[in-house]
Amino acid sequence: MPGSRIALRSFDNRLVIGTFTYLDDFLKAIDMVKERGLDYKVYTPCPIPEVEKTSANFWSKVRIFTFTGATLGLISGFALAILTSLDWPLRTSAKEIVSIPGFVVVGYELTILLGGLFTLFGLFCLTCIPALMSPLGYKPEFSADKFGLVFKCTDEEARFFIEELRKCHADEVEVRDHF
């Protein structure tokens, strides 16, 4: 996912954190950082389509987990009902031992159950949660009403970006040491 992960350039020793109130300013700042080829991370209080287009324009793999789980659920639901009925062949109400219409319910429910659980597992894997540590540069106001732009750069670049982010009307630009 290009453009979404902080680069591990060995000479980057500064972490720049820009905080914005307005979305248009924030988007301008993202464009500016992208143009200079730096990798960055953006924080928003909720999903915002404009930010998604610029910074997370990829196809989420979570649906692969979903498809795998749902398929497994469908197969295991029918397998459970059919194999256990054959293992204990008790005829009730003159119905077939393997009564497919009745077993559809079991297959259907397990499709949804495993599909849902695999989706949850996929979400955890792809978003790396549970996460014990707060990511570098994250601030509590990014979950409230501010937009956050975080990237790493060199000492020299940091001075340039402070000016550029201020031109983009950043509320606050913070530079932290990062080794």
Partner: peptide, 28 residues
């Protein structure tokens, strides 16, 4: 919260997963 932080990449996966959960819950 399991250490949730709302960066763009996470929101992308989150909204995809949420849509799929809704799609699964609807037939239920």
């Amino acid at each position: 919260s399991l250490g949730w932080r709302g960066d763009a990449e996470r929101w992308k996966h989150y909204t995809s997963a949420y849509l799929l959960f809704a799609a699964f819950a609807t037939p239920l």
